[in-house]
Design a protein around this nucleic acid. Structure first.
Lengths: 340, 340
DNA sequence: ATGAAAGCGCTAACAG
DNA sequence: CTGTTAGCGCTTTCAT
């Protein structure tokens, strides 16, 4: 159980067990036939030594790395943890493991993280969004491994893509809002250049309104800080500036929740006086006085499907999967959007 | 820019640039002196080929892996993202990179993740908590690399530890509550066997109360679901059951926020009629009608310090750091705890 | 069912 | 400043 020569090798196990390195390797990988006697001799030795195989060497020799690189902009977002859950669950069926890289929405950072990841020769890449820098696209295209772009399908994939149409999502929400009779509509969201998906929802939203001759009355954008507090403050300020607003569409549930709290506080009736909707269907805000209208962004399923595509491409799973998978988010009306 | 033979090697770059593999390697790692001419020849070749070095081979040859394994129970928790930020920021000064493994509070899963991580021979390990299984402790102790246990310091470290005393945190909060004149105190938290740190806070809390002859009037535990919703429901139920409660201590800010919303809703005056306190100082809930009393858990600093210890041990940073670092959380009174 | 030889792609160490 | 040699610790392939 004790040990001194730190990086133990197969050779050490071989010597202690009196079995060749090759056979030890077979036992450890459950590969090929090994007699029960030999097997237990080896297992005893590894256990008593506390041997941990060196995957670096194994990967180099076998030219196979059971890692899937996952590159996402942020983790604190509520949205990616759920994507990760989907990925992990799907990969648990295989011997693949996810490794996460965070870009903070910075293209230069994305390039660096991607380069770093590729240098470990993973078995696949899952990367958020369709908007990579030219350099990143080249790396991905030349990587020789399966690449799945996730979250968004409004654009052309490098290889495979799984996600929802954020433009369509914005459009659907606009249509539902208009159908419910709201007319004076405001928008509140993150500073868009950073977040392409929020931008696309906004574009789809305004286009669908325009189609029915409606234009956004007011809008406000924020960056940084607590989304809940921002939603609160900004909702107050937008309603002060544009008191005739009867609906506010938020680019995510957290600022929407802030808005909800503000209106609740001010005794403004929801949804008759002012209606609200967010995006993402985040469980975190379950428990507010009202359930915010929102749209499921299919995060779990996106992660799961993306991981399955990687598994299939590696011959680890047999499933009929397209290279382009569009999921369909549904509107949750909750308590803040009249249903008509 | 285009390429066909997928895993490009140093040899390919060497051939294209007319420079030996060794020198190409030097250029790519900025190691040793290389003339400007040679350097640019090499850089041109790598760029035009789109060569990405193979770290697997590099790590095997150099016996050095610039990875730091970070093993934590969960990511969706609000607490670990901030720890990760601290780790990332500290490691950014070095060439080390964090790799995260998630255990979901399952010891068996922790063992597996740890084994997997160790098999990549990282330059250090940062692992949450002091309560590992015997097998995990043996692996850690025998790994031959720096091990930093984080979050908690109520116990003995395997190697190094950075965190706060959760027992003391619970005690301090109890003292502040009593000092403010509250007498009928309730507790609400996660199912404790899973979460040792919440348990220790609870223990410290009740001990400090006992010292002043006070006993908890009521308590309730939950598991799973939206913490906000649980906080709301459970606060209602505990107050129904024990209407004389004048203070509730929550094991985290999210359920505390749920309780806050319930009381707000019921027009129960905070903090005069009922006082509240949570734990963690989570930015996410900034924006509630009142600021919940809480305690900073020093998450960022914990991550940062742990990473610095790893960097120092690897000779990548020169800083005088103890092996045991206790940080001191401070009470934030907010609006829900009388200050007397 | 087990072993021996060769080599994965890179870098340490030494030459020059 | 540049090149050569010898592995790093495994696994692949081929023998036995």
């Amino acid at each position: 159980m004790t040990q001194r020569k730190y990086p133990l090798t197969l050779r050490d196990v071989s010597e202690v067990s009196g079995v060749s390195e090759m056979t030890v390797s077979r036992v450890l990988r459950n590969k090929g036939d090994v007699s029960a006697t030999t097997r237990s001799k080896v297992l005893d030795a590894t256990k008593s030594l506390g041997y941990v195989p060196n995957k670096i060497a194994g990967a180099l020799a076998s030219q196979r790395v059971n890692l899937v690189a996952v590159i996402i902009p942020s983790m604190s977002n509520m949205v990616f943890p759920e994507v990760m859950t989907g990925i992990s669950q799907a990969l648990d069926e295989t011997d693949l493991q996810p490794v996460v890289g965070i870009t903070n929405y910075l293209p230069e950072r994305e390039e660096k993280v991607l380069y770093e990841m590729l240098s470990w020769r993973p078995s696949g890449i899952i990367i958020a969004g369709l908007e990579q820098s030219e350099a990143s696209r080249v790396m991905l295209a030349n990587s020789g491994i399966p690449v799945v772009q996730i979250m968004d399908i409004d654009g052309d994939p490098i290889d495979a893509m799984v996600g929802i149409s954020h433009r369509r999502a914005g459009r659907k929400m606009a249509e539902a809002i208009l159908k419910s009779g709201y007319q004076n509509i405001g928008f509140m969201g993150t500073q868009t250049p950073l977040d392409h998906r929020a931008r696309k929802r906004f574009e789809g939203f305004t286009q669908a309104l325009a189609k029915q001759g409606v234009e956004i009355v007011d809008r406000e954008f924020y960056t940084g800080g607590s989304a809940l507090a921002k939603g609160r403050e900004m909702t107050e300020s937008i309603l002060t500036r544009s008191p005739d607003l009867d609906f506010i569409y938020y680019s995510n549930d957290m600022i929407g929740a802030g808005g909800l709290l503000h209106l609740w506080d001010k005794k403004i009736d929801i949804p008759s006086q002012v209606g609200l909707a967010g995006f993402n269907q985040v469980e975190l805000i379950d428990g507010l006085p009202l359930r915010l209208a929102t749209m499921d962004s299919c995060r779990f399923e996106i992660g799961q499907t993306a991981a399955q595509i990687i598994a299939v491409r590696n011959g680890l799973l047999d499933l009929p999967l397209e290279n382009i998978v569009e999921l369909s988010p549904k509107i949750e009306f909750g308590d803040t959007l009249l249903r008509k």
